[in-house]
Each structure stands twice: as structure tokens, then as C-alpha cells.
Design a protein around this nucleic acid. Structure first.
Length: 447
RNA sequence: GACCCUAUGGUCUAGCGGUUAGGACACCUCCCUUUCACGGAGGUAGCCCGGGUUCGAUUCCCGGUAGGGUCGCCA
């Protein structure tokens, strides 16, 4: 029998990075085994759920490329879905729950008290066989000893998470429950329920959690916790996926860069690590830089234009060849597209603002005649391209008896306003003679 | 408070009784470079502590400590 796994997020309005990894591991296992990846929306808290909140999840998974074989097609709970085990929204499954509760009631495995329906919980310790953690024996805690039974249906008629989760897994034929380790202790409840329903529970695989760098729990507000951040900041899905794979799983051969396809081939549950991992943005950024550098030109262009537009730079106002040439000088230089507007903004504006500290250092009186000479050399260069400009600058430096750097830095500052950026000669070429001359002229008037 | 899980450099990890404890990120130095980035060459830094078991423990067992999780009419 082929495995059936599921990702069952609650639409809270954001997709936690840990949730994304849970989805990823489920997806990887399904793809590795040729099984089925089910997406189920746990929208039991009707008041807080909205279609927008579901869309955040759907969009996040789609962005990562984690396609589901069964589940909703849109964020609309009553909308279309794929798969024959639906509905895939808990809000649409209420009668299933009530039917199951009736069955429990009729067999005295549950009872009513104070308007709520409670489950007669097993008193003996329950063995949880876990594919990642191993066999875990879970006795009742001292608190639970006082009153081991727990609520299945609230007095307002709402079934609780533990109940619906188990019923859905049962009815959807889930064979492997791959979820965060925060559910490990509660798995005893789930196993007891499955048995009460007369079926063997699925296999469990509890994966370690992702924590903040300081070891604390990653919550909504923490940097990097929300998947949306990565979409917004111009990360590449392949980098995020790759990084997530490396948190709690290892190819064991020192490979760091892996495609989802590679991982799907090699991934398996028993190799998952048992300890929590701390989130390290630096390493993610490194991977991001790696993938960014390898981007095909058209995709780099597309993402760049998008990032610039988001920052208020309308590249449509410029000649397409100019835009492409400009962006070309940036490729391989930065890690996230969010950096691009600051990095390449000088191409798309006529008002250069100079870095104050750099201006203090480079826009000094002795540099004025140098800049003048350089301007003249540029003006008389046989052509205005990277090679001729480099030659012109070097000759000028030689004639002045100074190192090239004395011309390079003020020139870069005059033209871009900054101390670092794309290759100077190439950016000058792209900017073109007219703009370059004007900018040097303008800069010289400031000191 | 009880119970559960975990423990290799700052971080992610390889290791599954005998290794100069390997790799990656980050950091430092140097080279390349007219900036930055890339690339290249080096470097700093690690087996949580204490007991066992064993000829020998990072590795196995027990205890401690630390971190995380769970014990809801939250999910």
C-alpha cells in the first residue's frame, strides 16, 4: 500500500517556517515513496478563519513548489477540490465528527458531562512507536492522573482538535503522520482514540522543531518565522527549500546544495535527526546567493524588475536594452532581490545622493583637478565602453602620478553616490557618456 | 509539579568502540580585484558534566545539568 501523508495547517493568516518544513517533509516522503500528499485545512475556529488566511497557505506551498495530490484548489472552503476523500476543510466535515462521536457514546467509550462530551481515556501508559524518535512510552502526567478523561466535544458543540484530527486521518486513509515534535506527547491521546474507533493508528514520525538562534520558540514576530517574508524579500524558493531540507535531515555526504528532486530521491523518515535546529539566516542567505548567481538571465531580469517596481522604480520608463544592460552588471553581486533597489537605483534616477561619509573622504580639493582630468579623458576617449574607459582612467592616473584608486573612488561616488556597486567601467558604459559627464560635472560643483 | 524528547565548534551537520573528530555557514588572515561580490590559499573554534561497561569511549548504559515539548471546553 502506497503511503498517504498529509499537511494539516490551521489558517491563522500566516505560514510558519516550521510548518513549511513539515509540509516539505511530508511532500518529500510522498514523492520518495510514490505516495499521496494530502492538504487538509484545519479551519475549525470559524471566527478566525477567512479565505485570505487559507490563501496564504496555498500560495506559500505553491511558491515552494509543494504540489498536493488531494486537497483544496482554492481558499474557498466550499469551493472545488481534488481527491475523493474530501471535503478537505474541517469546517465542512462536521457531520462526520458527530457520527463518530455517536458511535463512541453508544459504546460507552465517551460520556456527557456538563454539556461537554468526554473520552474515556486509557489509564495505562501508551506506547508510541515513532519512526524518528523510536518507541516512546507515555504514561499519564500527575495532572492527568487526577482526571484522565478529556473533552471530545465542547459544550458549545464544537469538536476539539484531537478528535477531528484523528477522525480526518482515519477517514482520509492517512498512513503516516509526519508532524512537529510538539505533538509527540499528545499522540497518546490520538492512539487511544484510534483504538476506540477500532482501527490501528497510522505510523508516526515526529520531526524536530525549528527554533530561534537563541533557542527560543519561533513565533510569528520573529525574523524569518513567516514564509511570506521570503516571498516579499525576493528569496528564491529553491534556496528556501534547500535550506529547510538541511534542517533536521542530512544527505550525509557533505553535499550542501540539493534540488528538491535530489532530496526526494534520497529522503527517508528514519534518517531525520531527533534534535531541534536553530534557524540560521546567514546560511540561508549563502544558499540564496548561490542560487541567485546561477539564475538564468531572463528569470534574473524578471525578478529584478519586480523588486525594483516594488521599491517604486518603474523600469518601463527606460529603454529595455538599457535596463537589461544595467541589471546585467548586478548579476552575481547580491544575494536577495530586496537589495537591488539600493544597489542599482542609480541607474534609474538623475538625482544622485552621495554617501555622506564617502563624500567627506573623496570630494576633497585635491581630487577636483583629478576628476577634471578624468572627465576630459573620458570626453576624448575613442569610444565609450568599458575597455576604452578603463584605458583612459589608467592613463590619466599615470599622467597624474597617482594610483588608479584615487580616480576610481571619487568617480564611482560622483556617478553612483556610493562606495560600492557594479564594476565601475561597465556601469559607466551602461550609463552612457551623456549621463556620466553630467554626473561628474555635478559632483564637482559640490566641493 | 509530572511526563516526554534532545545534547559534536557560534550555527547546520558527518560520525554509529580505536579517526590527526570530516564538511558547510559565519568569523579572521592572505591572494585575486580599481569598489563590492565571486573565486583561491590558510586560520581560530567542538564531542555538556559525572559515574559505569570495555584493553579502549564522542560513540553503549545510568545519573545530573541544560534546552525544547506536553499535561485546555487552543490548534
Amino acid at each position: 500500500m502506497k503511503p498517504r501523508v498529509r499537511f494539516a495547517p490551521s489558517p491563522t493568516g500566516y505560514l510558519h517556517i516550521g510548518g513549511a518544513r513539515t509540509a516539505l517533509f511530508n511532500w518529500l516522503y510522498a514523492r520518495h515513496t510514490g505516495g499521496t500528499f494530502v492538504l487538509r485545512i484545519e479551519d475549525t475556529d470559524a471566527a478566525r478563519n477567512s479565505q485570505e488566511a487559507v490563501d496564504v497557505i496555498l500560495n506559500g506551498l505553491r511558491w515552494l513548489g509543494l504540489d498536493w495530490d488531494e486537497g483544496p484548489i482554492t481558499g474557498d472552503a466550499t469551493g472545488p477540490s481534488k481527491g475523493d476523500r474530501g471535503p478537505y476543510f474541517q469546517s465542512q466535515r462536521k457531520e462526520n465528527y458527530l457520527k463518530r462521536v455517536e458511535a463512541l457514546l453508544s459504546r460507552d467509550l465517551a460520556y456527557e458531562k456538563d454539556g461537554a462530551i468526554r473520552f474515556r481515556m486509557t489509564r495505562e501508559p501508551i506506547l508510541i512507536p515513532d519512526l524518528v524518535v523510536g518507541d516512546v512510552l507515555r504514561p499519564l502526567t500527575d495532572r492527568e492522573e487526577q482526571d484522565p478523561d478529556w473533552v471530545l466535544v465542547r459544550s458549545d458543540g464544537q469538536p476539539v482538535f484531537h478528535l477531528v484530527n484523528v477522525i480526518d486521518d482515519l477517514e482520509m486513509g492517512i498512513t503516516h503522520v509526519i508532524r512537529g515534535e510538539d505533538h509527540l506527547s499528545n499522540t497518546a491521546k490520538h492512539i487511544a482514540l484510534f483504538r476506540a474507533f477500532g482501527v490501528e493508528p497510522p505510523k508516526y514520525a515526529h520531526i524536530p522543531l525549528i527554533l530561534n538562534g537563541d533557542g527560543s520558540k519561533m513565533s510569528k514576530r520573529d525574523r524569518g518565522a513567516s514564509l511570506t517574508t521570503y516571498l516579499d524579500e525576493g528569496f528564491l524558493a529553491e534556496a528556501v527549500n534547500n535550506y529547510l531540507c538541511l534542517l533536521g535531515w542530512s544527505p550525509k555526504d557533505n553535499t550542501e546544495k540539493l534540488s528538491l528532486k535530489d532530496v526526494a530521491k534520497r529522503f527517508d523518515l528514519p534518517q531525520i535527526l531527533r534534535h531541534n535546529a536553530k534557524f540560521d539566516m546567514e546560511k540561508l542567505l549563502w544558499l540564496q546567493g548561490e542560487y541567485c548567481r546561477e539564475l538564468p538571465d531572463d528569470r534574473f531580469y524578471e525578478m529584478s524588475v519586480h523588486a525594483l517596481a516594488k521599491a517604486g522604480v518603474d523600469t518601463n520608463k527606460f529603454d529595455v536594452h538599457f535596463v537589461k544592460a544595467a541589471l546585467n552588471t548586478c548579476k552575481g553581486k547580491l544575494k536577495t532581490f530586496a537589495e537591488l533597489p539600493a544597489y542599482a537605483g542609480f541607474y534609474f534616477t538623475d538625482t544622485v545622493t552621495y554617501d555622506a561619509e564617502a563624500a567627506k573622504k573623496d570630494f576633497v580639493p585635491e581630487n577636483k583637478p583629478r576628476l577634471e582630468k578624468l572627465r576630459d579623458a573620458f570626453a576624448h576617449a575613442p569610444a565609450f565602453n568599458a575597455e576604452t574607459l578603463e584605458a583612459a582612467l589608467k592613463e590619466t592616473a599615470k599622467a597624474l602620478g597617482v594610483k588608479a584608486g584615487f580616480l576610481v573612488h571619487p568617480c564611482r561616488l560622483a556617478v553612483t553616490g556610493k562606495t560600492s556597486g557594479p564594476s565601475l567601467y561597465h556601469l559607466l558604459q551602461v550609463l552612457g557618456k551623456e549621463r556620466v559627464m553630467a554626473r561628474i560635472e555635478k559632483a564637482m560643483q559640490t566641493f
